[in-house]
Structure formats: structure tokens, C-alpha cells
Amino acid sequence: MTGRPASLPSFSQLPLNKDDPPYSAWGLYGKDDQLGFLNRQTDEIVAEAAKEIKTGVRVSMNWPLDAQSKVPFFGSPRIVNDDIWTFNTQSSSQSWGEKGIVGRGVLLDFHRWRLAHNIQAEIFQTNSIPLKYLKATAEYQGTDIKFGDILIIRVGYMPTFNKLSTDELIAFAKQTPPGLIGVERSEEMLEWIWENFSAVAGDHPAFESYPPPKDWSMHEVLLSGWGCPIGELFNLERLAEVCDNQKKWSFFVTSEVCNVPGGVASPPNILAIF
């Protein structure tokens, strides 16, 4: 069965338990569940997603592990409990999951849309992308959203990052906290994610506008409240090019993350297949 399950609670019913944190869905898949939103990637939904494969063209979304080797923005573990193995998982593409993340991916190329519509967006400033802009991007592309999709947003971080001089990178890395573009922090955005997706990702360091206010952040809701994987620093330049050439912004996605017991981040090892 594909499509939104009739048994899925509405966003307005959250939290599921009155004493739990705001918007949380603890216990939705049982008290011992470890997959959260990845339960939405059912066998039927993954099989349907495989129908996206038409040409066999494959595109990696992995940023090189040494991409920030000169001036890493997150050079050492922070109080948010980042993982470091022999490299810092915050210094390249990141994702999370246990059984792998597999399904239909949709690229919302916000960067392409905003340039076409003369919309200004500063990448290295606290700047929120409204939900209406993301919906407009999907409409502009002719992209339909299906339940269980993997949402991937291109804000144009990579080309902007690559234009920065070493001095500019050093100055930015010294900002505490740094300002970064991301999706708006709102109930409307949360409801849109709740009603449609199984995972979210983007090409920027923080999926949501950063820094978040002190009262709440989307990371808290998505990760701990819902178990929704967040992918960050995905290299989407080649993917955007292929999507534009094919005029098709949906594709099959496979992400086999590293099996690190107790880990909080991993290189995504992610591939789009058209």
C-alpha cells in the first residue's frame, strides 16, 4: 500500500501523549522503535519508488570528506554531541539511519527558482526560506510530492562556498554562532514535513535557518520527536544539472549509512538513480 496511511495521526494531534515534548510522536511505532520516520519507507513505497529508474543515470551527492580540510566550520566536537571517528562527521555530508534510507527522492531546486524570479537569499546569514517558496519551487518544476518522499533542498550553498577566499572562510568560521540560510522554523513547515516525507536534506550546513531561537528548534522535533533523518552538506550541483537536463526532479535514492552503534551522524553514501 502506498499513499498516506489512514492510521497516521494528523499534525494537530501532536504530541501523541500530553506530557511529552511539543509536536513529538513518541510511541507511534511502539515503545522500542528505533526507526521513526523511516518506518514510512515500506516495502511497497520503496518498490513504487524504483519505478523512477528509467535511464540508469547515477549521481552521487557525497561531498568529499576533506572538502573543509583547510578551514572547517565545525572543527571539533561541540556540546551537541557530534561524532568524530578518524574524521569529523560534521565536516562533510551527513545523514542517519539504521536500515539504510531508500525511496523516491525529490529535489526542490530553490536556488534555481529564486534566480529565475530575482529573489535575494544570503547564504551566510540567518535567513529563512518560507514554505510558500518551496511549494512555488515544486510547482515551477512540475514536481508532485508523494507520501514517503525524501525531501532534498538546494539553496546554492556549494557554489557560494567555493567562491569564498581563505580569509573569508576564516572570518566566517570565527563567528559564534555563524549565521546560515535554512528553511523557516514554523508549525506550517513542520506540518508539511509530517504529512509528506520520510527524510529531509539539503546542501547547507543546517537544514533550518541558523542559529535557531532559544525556545525551540526544528532539529529537536525532527530528530528526537519524530526520528526524521536530516541530511546536511549534500553536494547537489551535479544532481541539479541532471534534473534540469532531464526536466525531471524526482529519482530513486539509496543511502547506506555507516553502522555505528550509538552514533549520531554518518557520511550518507548517497546515490540518486534516474
Rank of each mutant, 00 (worst) to 15 (best):
M61W: 12
D19C: 06
R112A: 14
L190C: 11
E241R: 08
N162R: 07
W96Q: 02
S128M: 09
E188I: 09
T176N: 14
S60K: 03
N118H: 15
Q13D: 08
P212N: 15
Q90A: 12
S224Y: 13
E48H: 05
F234V: 10
N245R: 10
K174H: 15
A265D: 09
G179H: 01
G156L: 10
F172V: 06
P5T: 04
N245A: 11
T126W: 13
N62D: 15
I53V: 15
V155D: 02
E122S: 15
A25I: 02
W63E: 06
F172H: 14
R185P: 03
T2A: 04
G30T: 04
V257E: 08
G202Y: 06
A138L: 00
S91R: 09
P267I: 04
W192M: 09
A25H: 08
V102N: 09
S92V: 02
L16F: 13
L16M: 11
V264S: 12
N62C: 07
K214Y: 15
I270W: 01
Y210T: 14
C243Y: 01
E208H: 02
R238T: 13
G179W: 03
S128I: 06
D43P: 00
G3A: 05
G3C: 04
L131F: 04
N127R: 13
W63F: 05
D167L: 05
E184N: 00
N39D: 01
N259F: 05
G202W: 06
A116I: 12
I152C: 10
L164M: 12
K18H: 11
N62Q: 11
G100P: 06
K163H: 04
V71E: 05
D32N: 06
P229H: 11
P212S: 15
I79N: 12
P77V: 14
P212Q: 15
P64A: 03
S91M: 07
V257N: 08
A121F: 15
D244I: 00
L35D: 07
D20I: 03
N39T: 02
P177W: 00
F37P: 03
S209L: 12
S209Q: 15
F252D: 03
E187C: 09
M158E: 09
E48W: 02
I273T: 11
E184R: 06
Y157K: 02
A171W: 01
N127F: 14
L151G: 06
A67S: 02
V221F: 10
N235V: 08
D144R: 01
W249H: 12
I129M: 14
Q141C: 07
A206G: 02
T143S: 13
Q120K: 15
G27Y: 04
P159I: 09
V102S: 08
F147R: 00
S12H: 07
V242N: 03
G231P: 13
L223N: 07
M218K: 08
N81Y: 12
G182E: 10
F11D: 03
